[in-house]
């Protein structure tokens, strides 16, 4: 169940925005508790892990905490770069460190439109992000090695702009691959809805699905 959170966003000076990240129950387990984090622009937004499942070709095992945290960190950076940064007037953030080499060159325009939010108007007030705990599904080989993790994503970002409100809802799955100590997005299937009077076209809703 998703619920709303009020950012206690107090803009201090021009361009000062707050990013509110809410963790909502994702439906994968009652044990998940919502967490709210309020941070100023430029600081770290928080996303929490939800349930973690390991699909193993061998013996049952778990996902190491370090890997879990690293995967969620990549997801967090992705959400910030794809949606929050554009609303803050910074344009789409640098995705290169977040994407596997196999992804970038193969993106079609539709895939890219599903992956990032280009062309959003700059927010004039609070930016809020409500993010369900990220449900993780890892794949283990027979030897217990885990090099692929799937992340279920469900995030809603809202912002006020000069033309009116903007709402971006993105849901779907990311597959992340281990790259040393880091995890990079190897493929995705996402559905994004953008709506609100702040969008060009005056309130049009666009839905884009993409895979890579």
């Amino acid at each position: 169940m998703a619920f709303t959170t009020r950012a206690a966003a107090r803009a201090i000076g021009a361009g000062s925005l707050l990013v509110v990240v809410l963790a909502a129950c994702g439906g994968a387990g009652a044990s998940e508790k919502a967490a709210t984090t309020t941070t100023r622009v430029g600081s770290t937004m928080t996303i929490e892990a939800g349930t973690v499942t390991v699909e193993s070709a061998g013996a049952p095992l778990g996902l190491a905490d370090a890997d879990r945290d690293a995967v969620v960190e990549t997801v967090r950076r992705y959400v910030k770069a794809a949606t929050v940064d554009p609303l803050l007037g910074e344009g789409v953030g640098d995705l290169a460190p977040l994407l596997a080499a196999t992804v970038g060159s193969g993106l079609t325009p539709a895939d890219r439109a599903a992956l990032v939010d280009e062309g959003l108007p700059e927010s004039t007030g609070t930016v809020e992000a409500v993010v369900a705990p990220v449900v993780l599904t890892a794949l283990a080989d027979r030897a217990g090695a885990i090099d692929l993790v799937g992340a279920g994503l469900d995030v809603t970002v809202t912002a006020k702009t000069a033309r009116g409100p903007v709402v971006v809802h993105r849901a779907g799955e990311l597959i992340l691959v281990r790259d040393g100590a880091a995890w990079r997005i190897e493929s995705f299937r996402l559905l994004v809805d953008r709506s609100g009077r702040g969008l060009s076209g005056g309130g049009a809703t666009t839905a884009t699905q993409g895979n890579s």
Partner: peptide
Amino acid sequence: GPIGTLRLLAN
């Protein structure tokens, strides 16, 4: 979806 593919691969 992609996560379904992971489950398939585990099997």
